[in-house]
């Protein structure tokens, strides 16, 4: 009976634990192993190359370009998917009195749709020749630049597509955080006639810190993975890897160029960056949970 009680909780954890071990923990170790080899995913033998794949992550010009792109992606994603939704959630919470519910419902709708749908719609809307935006530009005497020819512009468009999908989701998370701030604190500042922007800056933002950091980290971790879909559908990382990022480049190396070792080294590098973010999440967000 006693030993049975000890085993019981692990029986409940077994399905998740088993799946995570097979499809997550072992694969991470195996990818780490593969990152020290030269392999093409099919050949029966793998050549041990030591740290060469890692050296290439940082010295190969294409990889360097991709790493810089990734940094550019992160900055853009933070602005589009974190800063703007945060400002909008503050407006909805503190500056308007009606329609809060309606905005929530409407803003969330694009989150229901596949990023492939989003990529298709926006490649129509922003089509430099026949799209509606190009049409409006022409009518007013401008020319819509052909963004597929420019890595930087392509990155902006790909980020906008992800923004279309996740904006509502992040907005609702941040708004919920603001909603959980005790009402009497907000009331007290209105009685004291403290200007709203000062109340927000000095009281609301610090109190909402934990959920804001959660959304900020999610924006980077999920955003870089979300961008994958429109990238593959519209630009396939082009022109000349100009819109590729470290995740997309891992995929290209693994399943298009069949450079498994390089792909694995890139994946491990991404993982290390994400681990830093995980550490921040545990420190600032999960740290408050009772399971810590």
């Amino acid at each position: 009976m006693h030993s049975n009680k000890k085993i019981l909780p692990f029986l409940y954890l077994l399905p998740t634990g088993l799946l995570l071990t097979i499809f997550m923990i072992i694969p991470i170790i195996y990818t780490f192993y593969l990152s020290f080899f030269d392999w093409n995913l099919i050949a029966p033998t793998k050549d041990f190359v030591g740290m060469r794949n890692y050296v290439e992550v940082f010295t190969d010009p294409v990889n360097q370009k991709v790493l810089i792109n990734t940094f550019f992606y992160i900055i853009l994603l933070l602005i589009l998917n974190f800063v703007i939704p945060y400002i909008i959630s503050l407006i909805v919470k503190f500056f308007i009195k009606k329609m809060q519910g309606a905005y929530k419902i409407v803003f969330f709708i694009p989150s229901l749709f596949s990023l492939v749908v989003g990529a298709m719609i926006f490649s129509w809307i922003l089509n430099p020749v026949s799209g509606p935006v190009a049409f409006l530009f022409r009518e007013s005497g401008f020319v819509l630049p052909n963004w597929t020819n420019s890595g930087a512009l392509a990155i902006v468009v790909l980020c906008l597509i992800t923004n279309w999908k996740v904006f509502g989701y992040n907005f609702i998370l941040l708004l919920t955080g603001l909603g959980s701030i005790p009402k009497n604190i907000i009331d007290a500042t209105t009685i004291d006639r403290i200007p709203k922007w000062r109340m927000i800056w000095n009281i609301i933002l610090p109190m909402n810190k934990s959920i804001a950091i959660y959304v900020l980290i999610l924006t980077i971790v999920q955003g870089l993975q979300y961008v994958f879909t429109p990238t593959n559908v519209i630009t396939t990382g082009g022109p000349y890897y100009g819109s590729s990022n470290v995740l997309y480049h891992t995929y290209l190396n693994a399943f298009v160029l069949y450079k498994t070792g390089n792909a694995s080294a890139l994946a491990i590098t991404t993982f290390l960056i994400f681990l830093v973010l995980l550490y921040l999440e545990i420190k600032f967000v999960e740290g408050r949970s009772k399971y810590e």
């Binding site: 499809f23 693994a254 994400f274 399971y291």
Partner: peptide, 23 residues
């Protein structure tokens, strides 16, 4: 164990896709 589960959210799909594809 709980943190280990939560941590899986931070695992990029690129790190598991090659082994999982092979499996």
């Amino acid at each position: 164990i709980y943190l280990l589960f939560v941590a899986t959210i931070f695992v990029p799909f690129t790190i598991v896709m090659i082994p999982n594809y092979l499996v």
